[in-house]
C-alpha cells in the first residue's frame, strides 16, 4: 500500500498496482522515495478522492479487455466525467501533476466536448477569461472566417 496526503492534510491508502498508473508516483517508488507518506501539495482531498476512485477502477485495464469488461469501464468513464467545470479542471490539474495519461485524455476530451459548440461569450464566462482583444482585432478574426461564428449549433448558454 502507498500513502498519499492531500494539501488539506488528509491521508489515503492506495494499492500500489493502482497508484503506479501515475508516472510521477511510479518513478518515486522506483527511486525508493515512497517509503513514507507522499505529500501532494497541489491536490485537495475532494479531488484526490476522485482520482483514487478512477485509479482503483482502472487498476486492471489489461484484464478488462480479456474479460469483456470494456463496456463496464466505458460506462464508468462516462459517469466519472459527469461533474461540474471546477471539479473537472481540478481533476485535470491533478492528472497533469501526477502524470496519469489515460485520466488526462478522458478529462481533456470531456472538456473539449463541452466547449465545442459554445459561443465565444460563453467560453469566456465558463473559464473566467477576460477579453483583452480590441474591437478591431476581434472583427478581424471574425472577418477571416465568418462561417465559424454562424450556425444553429452554437450555444450561448453557460453550463
Amino acid at each position: 500500500m502507498v500513502k498519499l496526503k492531500s494539501n488539506d492534510d488528509k491521508e489515503f491508502e492506495v494499492e500500489e498496482a493502482a497508484v503506479i498508473q501515475s508516472e510521477m508516483i511510479k518513478n518515486m517508488i522506483e527511486d525508493g522515495c515512497a517509503t513514507s507518506v507522499i505529500p501532494l501539495p497541489n491536490i485537495d482531498s475532494k479531488t484526490l478522492i476522485k482520482v483514487i476512485e478512477y485509479l482503483n477502477k482502472h487498476i486492471n485495464m489489461g484484464k478488462a479487455a480479456e474479460t469483456g469488461e470494456e463496456d463496464d469501464l466505458k460506462e464508468f468513464d462516462e459517469q466519472f466525467v459527469n461533474m461540474g467545470w471546477e471539479e473537472l479542471f481540478d481533476v485535470i490539474m491533478a492528472a497533469n501533476y501526477l502524470n496519469i495519461h489515460e485520466l488526462m485524455e478522458l478529462c481533456c476530451q470531456s472538456a473539449a466536448d463541452r466547449l465545442k459548440n459554445k459561443s465565444v461569450r460563453a467560453v469566456r464566462e465558463m473559464l473566467k477569461i477576460t477579453n483583452d482583444l480590441t474591437e478591431e482585432e476581434e472583427q478581424e478574426i471574425i472577418n477571416d472566417a465568418p462561417w465559424a461564428f454562424e450556425g444553429p449549433e452554437i450555444d450561448d448558454t453557460v453550463n
Binding site: 466547449l115 465545442k116 459548440n117 459554445k118 459561443s119 465565444v120 467560453v123 469566456r124 477569461i129 477576460t130 477579453n131 483583452d132 482583444l133 476581434e138 478574426i141 471574425i142 477571416d144 472566417a145 465559424a148 461564428f149 452554437i154
Partner: peptide
C-alpha cells in the same frame, strides 16, 4: 470552434 475561439482572448 478553434477559429471561433481565437476571439476569446
Amino acid at each position: 470552434p478553434l477559429l471561433r475561439f481565437k476571439c476569446v482572448s
